[in-house]
Every structure is written in C-alpha cells, then in structure tokens.
Design a protein around this nucleic acid. Structure first.
Lengths: 209, 209
DNA sequence: TTATATTGACTGACCGGTCAGTCAGTTTTA
DNA sequence: TAAAACTGACTGACCGGTCAGTCAATATAA
C-alpha cells in the first residue's frame, strides 16, 4: 500500500491535487480581474466548477488562497530566469539585453500585468506577501542583475561607478510598462516593442564604460 | 448686506468651506492608511469630527470623495512644477537635474508615497481617476520633461536619438522608490538620497551626447 | 432691542444588500 | 459499509447610503 502510494498517487490524491490547482487557477483569474477585496469566493467556486465550501477544504481563508495564487504564479518565472541565467554563455552586454527582453516578455504575457498591479496595489499590504515577494522574487532578480553587472565591470564592458545596489532604477521602467498597458492604454497607447528597445538601449548606454 | 457678503463670506459659508476641507483631509488620511475599499466612511467622519451623514451633504458618494481627495492633493504639486519650469533659467542639464530633485522631494514628503500606491493600486480601476490622473498629472509632467529634452537636444547637450516619447523610462524609478519606501523598507532599507543621485546621474549619462 | 419665524447644516439610528465563513446533509470512493 | 470529499443554504458581521428629527444661525416683526 505504502509502496503503491509512493509509486503512483491514488485516484483520490490525484483528484485532490487537481482540485487544488483548479481553485488556484480560478482564484488567479478572479483576483486578476477584480482585485483581492472585490473578488467573491462564490465566483471563484463557480469558475472552478465546485461548491464554495470546497474551497475551505483546501485553504484556510480567502487570504491564504490569495497568497498561494501569488506564489504559484511567480515561482515558475523566477525559476526559469535563474536557470536561464545560470546557463547563459556570452558577454555581459548580451546577457543583460536578453535578461531584460525576457523580463518584458514575462511581464506582458497572459495575466501578468494584472498580477503586477495586484501585488503592487493590494499585495504589499499583506506583510506575508510583501515578505515573500521581496525574498523570492525581487531579491533573486536583483542578485541576478548585480551578477551580470559585476561580470561586465570585470570584463571592462561596464563602468564601475554605477551603484549596482540600486537595481530598481533599471527594473522600474519595465514594471511601469505593465501597469501602463493595463490601465492607461486608452489614454495613450504604448508600443511595448519600441519601449523595451529604448529602455534596454538606455540601460546599456548608462552602464557602458 | 449683499455687499458685506461679497466682501467677506458669512460665518455659515466659512464653516461650509472648512467642513469640506476637513472631510477631504480626513478622507486623505484614511484612504492613504487603509486603501479605498477598506476605508469606512464612519472612520472618515470620526476623524473629521462630524457625523457620517454630513459627508453626504458635501459629496455624492464614497467614490466622489475619493476623486476629490486625489484631485486636491495632486493639483498643487502639478501647478508648482509647471510654474517652476516656466521660470527656470539655466542649461537643460541643470533644469532636468533640478526637476527630478524636486520630483523626489515631492514623492517622499508627507503622505505622498501612500497616495502613489493608492493611485497605482486602486485608483486606476476607476476610469474617471485614471483619466484625470493621466490628463492632469502624467501628461503635464511628460510634456514638461519632453520640453527640457528638446531644448537640450537643440543646445547640443543631449543626443537626438533618445525616443523622448517614452518619458516613463525616466520617471518610473522615482515612482518605484516611493512604493519601496512604503512597503519594502523593512526587508531592505533604501537610502533615498543616494538612490536619487544615482538615478539622476544615470539619466544624464543616458541622454548626454 | 427683543421676540418670533425660518432656514439649512448636521446627526446617527436605521435599512438593505453583500459576502466570508460554517455545517448538516449528500455523494463518491475504497 | 465506512470514511472521505463535497455541497450550498444559511448566518452574522459589516458598511454604504438614507432620512426624520434637532438645533444653531440668520432674517423678520414688534
């Protein structure tokens, strides 16, 4: 029995895992659409195709579900960025360029802009999420960029005088582009391709020796 | 009698104006502290030292009050920036430097970081506020910066190849610094002075010929 | 000047709608 | 058939918005 469980989860366990993911998925879509406070668990349940009570078999509270939604959706992005960076072969300039290109791609795919707004607008009010977000996402990205810059300095590609402590200066325009696309597109459409090009060129120019 | 009313407002009229401002003030503080959705009009009333019903003698709804709070607090900043820019004498480099210094000062004074988060997180969900914010604040600031850059290009201080359409790239790091200060200070304190210095230097380096 | 009438600013108890969270009963699985 | 999973009607707290009544400020009358 135990051996069988280790080899392949029972039908029940598979079902449970599927349910859990369905709820997180539905939560993601509703939270992204409505924001945390305005999201109704009834709607999440309908979207997941289950009864509301079932949610409470998998999560303690709306807040817990919210945290899990954020977690589950940001982890893959971080992991992918890290493994990509670890394997990258090329100059610091090339690396930085491709890192930011991938960042733009990630930030504008699917419901990421909504997630950015969610985290910035409401998420950071939850200490747990602010903590998680900083520790797992921001820090990781900062260290990654700092690593690239340091290599660039060592190789003589980048100047040493830029205070690499402040990677926010490099990243912020990308975050803002996601928010803009989401909320101010009507007032003033943004050509993300051109924006990203301009931004990356600006960064390189600011860092080059 | 009528003459007297024109010269100095009656006691009632003074009272009315004072009340209105007290409510906006109280609303500002509560909204900044709790966010729009979580703010209770009861609390606003208590803070303003009045009954809840009174709010509805001055504003149609919670949303209207919110709009007025945003408006009242952002107008002065915009106006000051505009008149300062109009009178500025000096090179484009000096002008851009001082413009951004003033922007940092404005963004980090009083409850401005909270206001930034409020607008970015919840405000933009209200089309009216997104519209107002874009039309009265962002546009104005963009045009101002574009003007400075253009002068810099004409005077040969700045390169012509930067796409000045994307002023967001220049501004975003300042906005993000306000959010950081507000929410991520615990995880990783930010030295705003040094940050602003680095940012401004980075901008100039990116624009200079 | 004093007494009376009118105005309108203000109040807070109240109402109706909403929704997170619960639990007794039902269905599914092993 | 026992246990586990699931359900959705229900509850109670919450809160934006209302309105009948109060009272201070002002206008009018005596």
């Amino acid at each position: 029995m135990e051996a069988q469980q280790l080899q392949s989860p029972s039908k029940r366990e598979q079902q449970k895992e599927a349910r859990r993911n369905a709820i997180i998925d539905a939560g993601y879509q509703e939270f992204a659409l409505q924001g945390f406070t305005a999201t109704k668990l009834d709607d999440v349940a309908v979207r997941a195709g289950i009864g509301k009570g079932t949610i409470y078999l998998y999560f303690d509270s709306k807040e817990t579900l919210f945290q899990e939604v954020i977690r589950k959706n940001l982890f893959p992005i971080r992991d992918e960025a890290q493994s990509y960076a670890a394997e990258f072969k090329g100059s610091a300039t090339e690396h930085l360029t491709s890192h930011f290109r991938r960042m733009y791609q990630a930030l504008h795919q699917d419901r990421m802009p909504e997630l950015v707004q969610l985290v910035m607008g409401e998420g950071l009010r939850f200490p747990e999420i602010a903590d998680f977000f900083f520790r797992e996402i921001i820090s990781s990205n900062q260290e990654l960029i700092q690593g690239i810059i340091q290599k660039g300095v060592e190789d003589g590609e980048f100047r040493a005088s830029f205070n690499a402590e402040f990677t926010q200066i490099l990243i912020a325009p990308a975050m803002v582009s996601a928010l803009w696309r989401l909320q101010l597109e009507k007032q003033s459409p943004l050509d993300i391709e051109a924006y990203a090009d301009t931004h990356i060129e600006f960064i390189l120019r600011g860092l080059k020796t």
